[in-house]
């Protein structure tokens, strides 16, 4: 079984994001970029499936600008076998990404797609559900446990009330949550090896997908700022203030 892992290049989770003065977006120049943390978890899970002999090949795929190659190389260094870059300068929405991914799936015929539950830039939490719909496959979002069981997949999902267990027909689409695993760091030898692994580049036109955006960004602005308050010296003072000043208890 091939496993396909769509991964996204985003601003590093530790960077303090700043809104551009002209409100056209957020500052991206000279900002540290990284693989979306949830995608790292997806790659890790795929590589573990390969190490367990369940997966035969792990393919990482990313849609975006040329620099997304770096993210793909990181995936290769973590243990993926080959990479596909769907290269475009258009700002892609989940619907377009889902269509691009479907085109890749039609060609590669993987048995499983592992995606992050959410990209930490747009915070959309949509792509896995959307590509699953377009493929007509089963879906399990927010996975904290994934186990292949013959031609079925058992997945534990993190839901608002706790955990939920579902059994999926394969092929399947799974989006991964934080507790699924702890992603490995790529070792230096593996980073070197990754440079020689195959990385194929295609375009949305090659795949016959129209990526014209449907949602227009009118502006991107600063969130309302919160003022730091006061320091209290004791628990007694805290309780007094909560009762008489804030009046919340």
């Amino acid at each position: 079984m091939k496993v396909l892992v769509p991964i996204k290049r985003v601003i590093d989770a530790n960077v303090k994001v700043r809104v551009k003065a002209d409100e056209s977006g957020v500052e991206l120049t000279n900002v540290k970029m990284a693989m979306n943390p949830f995608c790292e978890i997806a790659v890790e899970e795929a590589v573990r499936l390969k190490e367990a002999g369940t997966a035969s090949e792990v393919i990482v795929v990313s849609a975006g600008i040329t620099q997304s190659q770096e993210t793909l190389r990181t995936g290769l260094a973590m243990g993926a076998d080959r990479a596909i870059l769907i290269q475009t300068d258009v700002a892609l929405e989940p619907l377009a990404i889902a269509k691009l991914l479907k085109a890749v799936v039609d060609k590669e015929e993987p048995g499983l797609l592992l995606l992050g539950k959410q990209a930490i830039d747009g915070d959309n939490n949509q792509t896995a559900q959307m590509v699953s719909a377009l493929l007509g496959w089963s879906q399990a979002t927010f996975a904290s446990k994934v186990a292949v069981d013959g031609d079925k997949l058992n997945v534990t999902r993190e839901v608002d009330g706790g955990l939920e267990n579902v059994n999926l027909n394969m092929p399947a689409v799974v989006s991964v949550d934080l507790r699924l695993n702890e992603p490995r760091y790529a070792s230096l030898p593996n980073i070197m090896k990754a440079k020689k692994k195959p990385l194929e580049t295609v375009t949305p036109e090659d795949l016959g997908v129209d990526v014209t955006p449907r949602v227009e960004t009118v502006k991107v602005s600063e969130p309302p700022a919160r003022q730091a308050g006061v320091k209290v010296a004791s628990v007694a003072e805290l309780v007094e203030k909560l009762k008489n000043e804030a009046k919340v208890i």
């Binding site: 939490n125 879906q139 449907r214």
Partner: peptide
């Protein structure tokens, strides 16, 4: 977790780009 799970799937079937949250 329910809405996030269901709504994007319906949107894709309708060829619509959903707006989250």
């Amino acid at each position: 977790s329910f809405g996030k799970n269901v709504l994007p799937r319906a949107a894709a079937l309708l060829d619509v780009q959903p707006v989250s949250d």
